[in-house]
Amino acid sequence: MSDLRTTPLRDLHVELGGKMVPFAGYEMPVQFPLGVMKEHLHTRAKAGLFDVSHMGQVIVFSNQGYRAAALAMETLVPVNLADLGKNRQRYGFFTNEKGGIEDDLMLANRGDHMFVVVNAACKEGDVAHMRENLADCSVEEITDRALLALQGPSAEAVMSGIVSETADMKFMDVGMFDSDFGELWISRSGYTGEDGFEISVANDQAVAFAKALLAHEDVEPIGLGARDSLRLEGGLCLYGNDIDANTSPVEAALTWAIQKVRRRGGEREGGFPGADRILDELENGAGRTRVGLRPDGRAPMREGTELYAAAEGGEVIGKITSGAFGPTIQGPMSMGYVPSDLAAEGTRLFGEVRGKRQPVSVAAMPFTPANFKR
């Protein structure tokens, strides 16, 4: 643990009874005394506070303004950024020449520059990738700010008590606001399927800000364990598990994130790494597809479980990439990849668990409805 990096909230996590574990090179809380199950349910019912300061925060700036920075970034992602409205954010992903996903990320138009949030395990590579390929832009990694996520139905009431304007924000709005804790960079987004906010705050204000949020009776600290089960119930991908450098956005069922303007016949068709494969799959389909899966019984089918079309015999036809027990749905849930002709909801498959094949059905995602503020 002594070789791991820490976030500005590390000592507060310990003070609150957090069980600290290694994650993406950081010492992070996996759970607090409430326990993973109750933390999960509390976030769904009220509000949970997550430390996501291990994520990368990056500013991309062009002397020619936001649109120039956006057009430059469009050479790396298959997303319409040039037409993204001011103070709006979009989900996207870096693709490689094979059409695989190098990382998924959030990209925001903050008026005169772009704000990018990338995954912790990929951030050094992502920053280098942007610096190498965005030649006419400056790429500044922000290292003096923490990042917190406040998620759940009570998030608006809690957050608007600190910054009143946040009550007027809609899902995927972003803004920069003055507060008693200095300037806060806020997006109305998250990784739980619930309404909520992600808030960037200066390192020297992070603990005071976190304590102010936790002082509200509806807010509890939440660890990585519940963060994972919440995002899985929400049908959200975890990079390195559900998507990776060999998985295309079409295979990953992320085609909703590729706008028409970047597809065949669009005004800015292609022009990103792996475009030939991705555009072809958009038109003709991919051989495999990410799906939701509901195992029979109560036991989860976890990452790496091999899938078969029959209870006996036959070859492996797919694999589970994430699996857990869903506290909200009171049952096991998984996601994974299956041949596209076996991806219809209700299709019966079999997962091999400890040498025995157990029934599992293809299911719609998200497993629990999203509560974003539209």
Rank of each mutant, 00 (worst) to 15 (best):
R357N: 10
A252Y: 03
R290G: 00
A215W: 03
K19R: 13
G274E: 12
G111Q: 00
E345F: 01
L224A: 07
R227N: 06
D280K: 14
D228A: 13
N80V: 07
A82I: 09
L236C: 00
V163H: 05
E198V: 00
S2F: 13
L342G: 06
Y308M: 00
G234V: 04
Q151N: 12
V174E: 03
G240Q: 12
G314Q: 13
P29V: 06
C237K: 02
N241L: 15
G266T: 12
D228H: 11
M130C: 14
Q64A: 15
K356S: 13
N63Q: 14
L9G: 05
T166R: 02
M20F: 08
D244Y: 00
V58K: 06
A208R: 14
E315N: 09
K373T: 12
A215H: 11
L236N: 02
I222M: 14
L282K: 08
E303M: 15
P221I: 09
R131V: 08
F115E: 07
F350W: 15
G25H: 08
V127E: 01
V163T: 10
A206T: 06
A82P: 01
V362Q: 04
P8T: 00
P273W: 07
A226C: 09
N371H: 11
I142C: 04
E315I: 04
G314V: 14
V201S: 08
S62M: 07
G17H: 10
A309C: 05
G351Q: 03
E306M: 02
E283H: 03
G35E: 07
C137N: 10
K38C: 05
T43R: 06
F23I: 06
F325R: 10
P221D: 09
V14R: 13
E141Y: 05
E124C: 04
P332E: 02
E269Q: 12
A344K: 12
A155P: 06
E132Q: 11
M301V: 01
I317H: 01
L34H: 09
A120E: 09
C137M: 02
L76Y: 02
I162V: 15
G234N: 06
E315F: 00
M333Q: 10
S189R: 02
N203R: 00
N109E: 12
E97D: 15
R131F: 03
L238R: 11
G125F: 08
L238I: 13
E312P: 02
K356M: 10
A149H: 10
A252T: 03
E15T: 13
A167R: 15
M114W: 05
E281N: 01
L81N: 07
Q259Y: 11
I222Y: 02
K19H: 15
V158T: 12
H113D: 11
V118W: 01
D11R: 12
N284H: 14
F61C: 11
S248G: 07
T368M: 07
Q358A: 11
G100Y: 10
A149F: 02
K38Y: 01
L232T: 05
V116I: 15
N133Q: 14
E140S: 13
G18N: 06
N87V: 04
L224G: 11
H13D: 08
Y337V: 06
E281H: 11
G56W: 03
D242A: 10
I329R: 14
A206G: 11
L282H: 08
P153L: 13
G274Y: 09
T95L: 11
D112R: 08
V163E: 07
I243R: 04
A24P: 01
A82L: 04
G193S: 14
I59D: 15
G25P: 09
V207M: 09
M73I: 13
R288F: 00
A286G: 00
S340H: 01
